Simulated assay, not measured.
Amino acid sequence: MIPSWLSWDVAVISFVFLVVILTFLFAKLIDRLLKAYFVLASKKMNIDETTYGLVRRIIVAIVYFSGFIVIIFSIPSLRDLSIALFAGAGFAGIVIGMAAQNTLSNIIAGIALATFRPFRVGDLLTIHEEYGRVTDITLGYTKIRTWDNRRLNIPNHIISDEAIINWSIDDPTVNWTVEVGISYDSDIDLARSIMISEAKKHPKVMSYEQLLNYHSYAKKGEEVSVLVTELGDFAVNLKLYVWVHDRSVAFNTGCELKEAIKKRFDAEGVEIPFPYRTIVYKKDLEESQHESVA
Score class of each variant (00 low, 15 high):
78 L>R: 00
120 R>S: 10
121 V>H: 07
117 R>M: 14
143 K>S: 06
172 P>T: 05
163 A>W: 13
121 V>Y: 10
103 T>S: 14
170 D>Q: 10
78 L>P: 01
122 G>C: 04
164 I>T: 12
195 M>C: 07
164 I>K: 07
144 I>D: 00
163 A>G: 08
190 L>S: 07
140 G>K: 14
94 I>V: 12
129 E>M: 11
157 H>K: 09
141 Y>P: 00
196 I>G: 00
110 G>V: 11
204 K>C: 03
114 A>E: 06
160 S>P: 10
175 N>P: 01
90 G>I: 07
95 V>H: 03
205 V>Y: 09
91 F>V: 14
190 L>W: 00
86 F>C: 02
78 L>S: 00
188 I>S: 02
157 H>G: 01
105 S>A: 14
108 I>F: 09
124 L>Y: 15
156 N>L: 11
152 L>C: 04
194 I>S: 08
148 D>C: 06
104 L>K: 03
98 M>F: 12
191 A>N: 02
100 A>F: 13
145 R>I: 08
85 L>P: 02
111 I>R: 13
136 D>T: 10
130 E>D: 09
163 A>S: 11
171 D>I: 15
83 I>R: 07
173 T>S: 11
142 T>W: 09
97 G>A: 05
202 H>V: 02
140 G>L: 15
146 T>Q: 05
123 D>F: 10
169 I>Q: 15
181 G>E: 04
193 S>F: 12
111 I>D: 11
147 W>P: 00
136 D>N: 14
86 F>Y: 08
141 Y>C: 00
115 T>L: 13
158 I>C: 01
111 I>C: 14
119 F>T: 08
179 E>Y: 08
101 Q>I: 11
152 L>R: 05
180 V>F: 07
155 P>S: 01
149 N>I: 05
116 F>D: 03
195 M>W: 13
91 F>D: 05
115 T>G: 01
135 T>V: 11
114 A>G: 15
122 G>Q: 05
169 I>H: 11
136 D>R: 13
96 I>F: 12
139 L>E: 04
172 P>N: 08
95 V>Q: 02
154 I>V: 15
139 L>G: 13
141 Y>E: 02
